[in-house]
Design a protein around this nucleic acid. Structure first.
Lengths: 195, 195
DNA sequence: GATTCAAACGAACGATCGTGCTATTGTGTA
DNA sequence: TACACAATAGCACGATCGTTCGTTTGAATC
């Protein structure tokens, strides 16, 4: 990889980590520069505006998430095994000490009520995420693992919901039993929809 | 009510609205002062520090939420009717145009990784919220509406999850069918646990 | 080795941040 | 009505914000 491209990747990875631990607004260009180890103006030149920086972080988050969660699940057989791996990868995103909250959730807090390019991008990525999850549930039907009659939109919603719920239980409440409860709910959800 | 107390209520209500639409960090003392219509230093005197302001907003959010969602549900008969009203009141919190995201979710984004009094308070309120929800589910068992054998912690988790999920579907994705999907999931959850 | 061009830097800008002061206003009580 | 005191305002502070500018560095090209 290019030297310049590597540098940019380092910046975006660092930025993503910071955003996932303190939100978007708290991430100043100066603090990010210090974290990366370069000057404020030097880092600024990579983005040319804070809004563009936010957009790039959002894109990088989507790219990273797509890789870590969805792409890595392709090595499992399509259908239920793959769906399970997706959930497993997803949950790992929140559990690792290096991780943090969902970057899209962080963006949502600050941008849901602020129309503009950032909110649009956030919406795009969130829609893609849900659509991808929905697709992998449809695959479960196709493979005969789930009942054909189920409402995949509803199942997608429920699965996404307990993942976000798990995030809150783990990070905000720091509940010891969060993993166990989540797993029980997940198993139950799968059982309800299994053929 | 006292003039001073009324003023403080106005300040806190305004602050809460702002927080629910742009997060905690974006809420500066100056911007809040302007919104309320008073001077920066005049408003500052009410809190004496930004951290204390965040704490008071958090407390006010908990108080308001407790009133709007839980206290107002007491007029319904205990058990399932009351639980349904709780959920109804809760969802209304997100749907009104004046509303916004969950203030505790907003705080979580910025404070989950920052140990200190604010995170402690956030944790306290979130725990209380979940405990109260759990209690009202236990009441459903007591009243014979829910099966006695169900794991109330798990049901609480699932109910809380779809409410948060609904919030994301409504506010971030702005999905037209969000209400319908949520209602279907809610009905399903109730049916699964009904005696 | 000279030239070129992008990357990074240091310094500075106006604006705003949170936070102290002191003075002034307003409210409730004697 | 006069007094006491809380509430608010005005002003200034150092720090930090996003941003601009001109300069310096470093690597690739000729």
């Amino acid at each position: 990889m290019n030297v310049a491209a590597e540098r940019k990747l380092t910046i975006l990875n660092t930025a993503l980590n910071l955003v996932r631990n303190m939100g978007f607004e708290s991430l100043s260009i100066a603090s990010l520069a210090k974290e990366v180890g370069m000057s404020k103006s030097g880092l600024f030149a990579h983005f040319n505006s804070k809004e563009k920086m936010h957009l790039m972080i959002l894109d990088h988050a989507a790219y990273t998430f797509g890789n870590d969660v969805f792409k890595k699940s392709l090595k499992s057989k399509r259908g239920l095994p793959r769906l399970k791996l997706i959930v497993h990868n997803w949950v790992r995103w929140y559990k690792t000490g290096e991780g943090g909250t969902c970057p899209f959730l962080a963006a949502a807090v600050e941008y849901d009520a602020k129309p503009g390019p950032v909110k649009d991008r956030l919406q795009l990525h969130t829609n893609t995420l849900i659509a991808t999850l929905n697709k992998s549930i449809e695959l479960c039907i196709e493979q005969g693992h789930f009942k054909p009659k189920i409402d995949t939109k509803k199942v997608t919603f429920e699965l996404y919901s307990i993942i976000i719920g798990h995030l809150v239980y783990i990070r905000t409440m720091e509940l010891k039993s969060a993993n166990k409860i989540f797993q029980a709910s997940l198993d139950d959800l799968i059982k309800r929809n299994s053929a």
